[in-house]
Amino acid sequence: MKAIVSRSAGGPHDLVFADMPAPSAGPGQVVIKVHACGVNYPDALIIADQYQYRPERPFSPGAEVAGEIVALGPDVQQLAVGDRVIAMLKWGGMAEQAVAEATYCIKMPPAMPYEDGAAFIIGFGTSYHALKQRGMLNPGETLLVLGASGGVGLAAVELGKAMGARVIAAVSSEEKLQIALNHGADRGVVYPRKLADPKGLSTMLKEACGPGGADIIYDAVGGQYSEAALRAMAWKGRFLVIGFPAGVPRIALNLPLLKGCSVIGVFYGAFAEREPEASGQNNEELMDMYRAGLIRPQIHARFSLDQAGDAIAMIMSRTASGKIVVVVSEM
Results as ranks from 00 to 15, higher is better:
R7E: 15
H13R: 15
A25F: 05
G28Q: 14
A48Y: 12
P61R: 08
E64R: 05
G67C: 06
E68Q: 14
V70G: 07
Q78I: 00
W91S: 03
I106S: 05
M108K: 06
M108H: 11
A111P: 12
E115P: 05
A118R: 07
H129R: 15
Q133T: 15
R134D: 02
R134P: 00
G135W: 07
M136N: 14
S149E: 01
G150L: 03
L154G: 04
R166A: 02
I168V: 15
E174P: 02
L177K: 13
D186E: 13
R187T: 09
G188P: 15
R193A: 04
L195D: 02
L195N: 01
G200L: 04
A208G: 07
D215M: 06
I217P: 02
A220D: 11
Q224M: 13
A228M: 03
R238W: 07
L240A: 08
L253Y: 04
L258G: 02
S262F: 12
V263A: 06
I264S: 02
F267E: 13
E275I: 03
P276I: 11
E284P: 00
M289L: 15
M289G: 00
R291G: 10
I295P: 03
P297F: 05
L305R: 02
D306E: 15
Q307A: 12
I312S: 10
I315E: 01
R318T: 00
V325Y: 05
V327L: 07
E330M: 12
